[in-house]
Write a protein that binds this DNA or RNA. Structure first.
Lengths: 180, 180
DNA sequence: GCGCCCATGTAACTAGTTACATGATTCA
DNA sequence: TGAATCATGTAACTAGTTACATGGGCGC
């Protein structure tokens, strides 16, 4: 079974919040949900054309003073129906590929210092993420209109995930230090 | 910069433990490290040919009684060097795409029951994973030769991850229930 | 003979990334 | 005038999945 790319639904979801352009959606994704979703232009623009072709969104040329014109897309009733259908479907099993865990799995070949360096880099990354989540939380409380519960829920996941990784790294590093 | 596929290094890593065939490596991956790494035949066989072409592994035809012949690959000194170089390099930043979090982010459109169903499915999945990790832990203690510390470390990650997801699901479900 | 596991491989496909090209507007 | 940001798009690429084809050996 060919699983349709989720890009389509990510864009429909964003459009269900408010009409938007490809450029603006990319920006929103990078600034707000990058910790669990990414897109790139090479993906977005063709997907938007497809949405229009399928009648799930309509395009309008919009002019804003002081900026180039943009193509603003609005979700249609058909688009909302399609989105809701997808949202209610169970998630397809996702295969994981963690380069870090793969390296660590074979890290017996490395010196302790080099193995520790991998863990320290991961620890630093997630400490920084934890800092960023604090700001995101404040941002949602300010900007979010309507039901923020689910936004906070995904944010909570991010926080718990990074906190877990930090603890695991610290624990792993302490084990490495104890080693002969 | 084109990032070389990690499949190459995954296979080199496995070969650094012991000579093996593509089929056997696929089996090992599926049975032991599926929780953080996956491969499929369409990926493995071409990668093995490439390893041979680059002089990182050598192929030998092997016959086992009662089974079809197999191509057993052995890592070369050059292959080990290449592997060690890769292992010591910092991990490239990995982009995350979680279909579950994406759905949840837009779950304000769903009934509470449907949103809860997504979480319940995830909870069930990770409860089952936790069960499996127990067995894997025992398996490593028995079979693992040499330095098991790093194997246990990746397993510890899996356990912590699934435990975190379970807690997050339960917490999220309790919030959904409290909602008006 | 049939179904199952062993074993290898490829072709066609879907998905996702990167690099490039274009052009507007703003600000220093 | 040059750098930065806004804005759209495509072509070429890398990566990964699925489906298919083939054939040996084993047990029923």
């Amino acid at each position: 079974m060919p699983r349709t790319s989720a890009t389509k639904y990510a864009l429909l979801g964003l459009l269900s919040c408010s009409p938007s352009s490809g450029y603006a959606m990319k920006k929103f994704i990078d600034e707000s949900i990058r910790y669990f979703w990414t897109e790139n232009y090479g993906n977005i623009y063709p997907a938007l054309s497809a949405l229009e072709r399928e009648g799930l969104a309509v395009k309008q040329r919009a002019q804003t003073s002081g900026r180039p014109d943009s193509n603003v897309f609005t979700i249609t009733a058909k688009g909302e129906k399609e989105l809701d259908k997808w949202l209610a479907e169970p998630c397809l099993p996702q295969l994981v590929r963690s380069e870090l865990l793969l390296k660590l799995f074979f890290a017996g070949r490395l010196s302790r210092g080099k193995a520790a360096a991998l863990l320290k880099a991961e620890l630093a990354k997630h400490k920084e993420l934890l800092e960023r989540y604090k700001k995101t939380g404040a941002c949602i409380s300010e900007h979010g209109r309507g039901d923020k519960a689910y936004w906070l829920l995904t944010l909570d996941y991010g926080r718990r995930h990074s906190a877990m990784v930090c603890k695991w790294c610290e624990h792993s590093l302490s084990i490495l230090e104890k080693k002969s």
